[in-house]
């Protein structure tokens, strides 16, 4: 049994060959295409660690059948997230074990694309589908505010549209003027 299809992953056209119709996009990304940005924790839509953007909408890739994605655009954490969002997570201590982080980064990128300056309640609502067992969420919310401020500042300088994914930025340094009580610095790490 073979089923072949082409999809766009993080800007690159890739071909996947499946042997059953119900294979999830998450599984295809990780196990056939070697793109391990989306994490697998529950495979039942509950945790959000596998969140990606499918044609620009946040979805849990474990519940999308890859075969539904012929010709569609998928963005994982590697291609969906502006530098300021990543930087803010690191600067605010919003990452501990890091397992939830890729999914959260994608959800935050999606949120800020729609709403450049969300209130706490809007952030909580937008991130309700992303579970984190470590941080207690407060630092994550701080990070979203920080990223929003940084993006607004960036966009005022360049006049760039709010939804444009930005290139990676250098590692953040501790900055005494950080807003929203962000005071920790994260060292580089991988999950």
């Amino acid at each position: 049994m073979r089923l072949e299809l082409t999809l766009l992953v993080d800007g690159e056209a890739v071909t996947a060959v499946l042997d059953r119709p119900g294979e999830s996009l998450l599984r295809t990304l990780r196990e056939r295409l070697g793109r391990t940005g989306a994490k697998n924790a529950c495979e039942q839509g509950e945790c959000g660690s596998c969140t990606v953007l499918l044609d620009g909408e946040a979805v849990v890739s474990c519940l999308v059948a890859t075969a539904q994605c012929e010709g569609r655009e998928v963005r994982t954490v590697a291609g969906a997230v502006p530098g300021e969002v990543r930087e803010a997570f690191a600067a605010c201590g919003a990452v501990q074990c890091g397992f939830c982080t890729p999914g959260l980064l994608v959800s935050v990128a999606d949120l800020l694309g729609r709403n450049p300056d969300p209130a706490d309640a809007e952030i909580r609502e937008a991130l309700a589908g992303n579970l984190c067992r470590c941080t207690g969420y407060e630092k994550i919310i701080e990070a979203v505010h920080r990223a929003a401020t940084a993006r607004t500042a960036e966009n005022t300088h360049t006049g760039a549209p709010g939804t444009r994914p930005l290139p990676p930025s250098p590692s953040p340094e501790k900055d005494p003027t950080l807003p929203h009580g962000c005071d920790s610095v994260m060292t580089e790490g991988r999950t």
Binding site: R20, P21, G22, E43, G45, C62, L63, V64, A65, Q68
Partner: peptide, 27 residues
């Protein structure tokens, strides 16, 4: 098996409660 959003059907597939030989995408 018809599949729309997949939010019910894919949970069954991922947990092997459902092993469809064929699916019909409604999207």
């Amino acid at each position: 098996v018809p599949i729309a959003g997949g939010t019910d059907v894919m949970v069954g597939v991922n947990y092997r409660r459902l092993r469809p030989a064929a699916m019909i995408d409604l999207t």
